[in-house]
Simulated assay, not measured.
Amino acid sequence: MIDLDETDRQILRALRQDASLSAGELGRRFGLSQPACWRRVKRLTEAGVLTGRRLVLDREALGFGVTVFLGVKLATKGRVSLDEFERAASAIPEVQTVEHVLGLFDYRIRVVARDLPDFERVLRRRIMTLPGAGNVEANVMLSEERLPGPL
């Protein structure tokens, strides 16, 4: 575990909001020189605190108006490996995340679709045919109030 000071936390919060910020811009915001800020970002990256940068796409602007969270209980534990299920689920283009969880379901899957008929097609033709898929429960996302922030 890496020891973080308040400046490190400020840098992480700023990069969480906009991962494209340069070391120079971050330094100006937090009273550091560009090289000092760059060294901090490099240290955070080398320690594994920063593991990459990603682009967040607007699903609705791209025509994906429906997000559904699925709870999937495997029907044939033991006959199908978890890795096989995860690989097959991750290969579906509409699947955003595949999470192995404890509780009522074995997996939580986030799926995007253009509309409800499109989701039904994905569910019937892709999700329900996954190796080992058993019971599936769907929850349609009505709104997203808060995006996850830094720890």
Rank of each mutant, 00 (worst) to 15 (best):
R9A: 07
R9P: 09
Q10L: 14
I11N: 04
I11T: 01
L12G: 00
L12F: 06
R16L: 14
Q17K: 15
D18V: 03
D18I: 07
A19T: 03
L21H: 06
E25H: 10
R28L: 15
R28T: 05
G31E: 05
A36E: 06
R39I: 00
R40V: 01
R40T: 00
V41H: 00
K42V: 03
R43H: 08
L44G: 10
T45E: 01
T45C: 10
E46R: 15
E46I: 07
A47Y: 06
T51D: 02
R53C: 07
L55Y: 14
L55P: 03
V56M: 08
L57M: 12
L57Y: 09
D58K: 15
A61V: 12
A61F: 09
A61N: 03
L62S: 04
G63A: 01
F64E: 01
V66I: 08
T67G: 12
T67M: 10
F69V: 13
G71Y: 11
R79H: 14
V80W: 01
S81K: 15
S81D: 04
D83R: 14
D83N: 14
F85R: 11
F85K: 06
R87W: 08
R87E: 08
A88S: 12
A88C: 04
A88Y: 02
S90F: 08
A91V: 04
